[in-house]
């Protein structure tokens, strides 16, 4: 927000466009064209063209084949498991990630800096290593006596681990920037700490919470490495979509693999777009 504009005396009441920022869209025409050009080119090479090829491959034997490939019992089971588990994982990490971000920003405790660094570990670790660790910890020889190997709970656990940082890292900066005086103002107006949280803090965090959740969800859908070991890849039971795609490719069924990939792609897109719409709807403020 440009404060110099905000503090200028406003036009008289009723004048049009009191709060509108002057926007010069073409202020640096040359620079803008170059910037947009390279961004589009890069995005096309890295993202759009490969995705288009996947989608194209998935229907190169006709829509009927696409449909049959997606609805074979094992593919369908893998897809529903993946989407369902991802949904659950995104929800859990929405709550837990927000709590962790809160604790990291608002509380003081010894070793906070270490914890803050640890949050990024799931990002940094190769996911197959994460899978190994999880298998060692929660596998048949679990030192904790907790065997989650070859079960759906194991899949969920692996996904929880890999997607933990998303919500934490999106909520944390917003919480840091949050104006403490808003909370003090609410308190002096009579709001209890809980009312202040629900009416003042939470609404300001929701956009960040939602985008973190969207990222966690889409990441879960695509997860391969961390789940491949602990799930045991039992078709109809613990095989996730990414692993199913892999086995289709191994079985030389690239069209089928592309079909399932396309479904994942669409689910991820729908999730991102709908959460984005939700955010816009929730923040019509300027």
């Amino acid at each position: 927000m440009t404060t110099d504009v905000a503090v200028r005396p406003a036009p008289p009441p009723g004048a049009p466009g009191g709060g509108a920022r002057p926007r010069s869209r073409w202020s640096v025409p040359g620079g803008t064209a170059l910037g947009v050009g390279s961004a589009v080119l890069y995005l096309s090479l890295i993202v759009l063209i490969p995705l288009a090829v996947v989608a194209w491959r998935s229907v190169d034997q006709g829509p009927g084949y696409f449909w049959r490939a997606v609805t074979t019992p094992d593919a369908w089971a893998a897809l529903t498991l993946t989407v369902g588990a991802s949904f659950l994982v995104a929800l859990i990490n929405l709550v837990m990630g927000t709590i962790i971000a809160w604790v990291l920003v608002r509380d003081r405790f010894p070793g906070k800096a270490v914890v803050d660094t640890l949050i990024d570990l799931p990002f940094a670790l190769p996911t197959i290593v994460a899978g190994l660790v999880l298998l060692a910890l929660y596998g048949p020889e679990s030192p904790l006596g907790l065997n989650l190997a070859y079960s759906r709970a194991g899949v969920v656990l692996a996904l929880l681990f890999v997607t933990l940082p998303f919500v934490v890292r999106t909520v944390q900066p917003v919480l840091l920037e949050l104006d403490k005086e808003m909370e003090q103002a609410a308190a002096s107006l009579g709001a209890s700490p809980f009312q202040t949280f629900r009416r003042i803090i939470l609404p300001n965090l929701v956009p960040a919470m939602l985008s973190g959740t969207a990222l966690a969800f889409t990441r879960s859908i695509a997860e391969f490495g961390s789940t491949v070991l602990i799930s045991g890849n039992l078709p109809f039971k613990t095989q996730v979509a990414a692993v199913n795609i892999f086995s289709q490719i191994e079985g030389d069924n690239t069209t089928g693999a592309a079909a399932i990939s396309t479904v994942l792609l669409v689910v991820a897109l729908v999730a991102l777009v709908s959460l984005d719409l939700l955010q816009r709807w929730g923040s019509r403020r300027g």
Binding site: M182, A186, A187, S188, G190, S192, P203
Partner: peptide, 27 residues
Amino acid sequence: PQRRNVGFVFQHYAAFKHLTVFRNVAF
């Protein structure tokens, strides 16, 4: 502070950014 019945105005307004002017005053 909730129980003192004082009104407090901050230098930097402490406006509730996500609420309209009406809802700010109504809080």
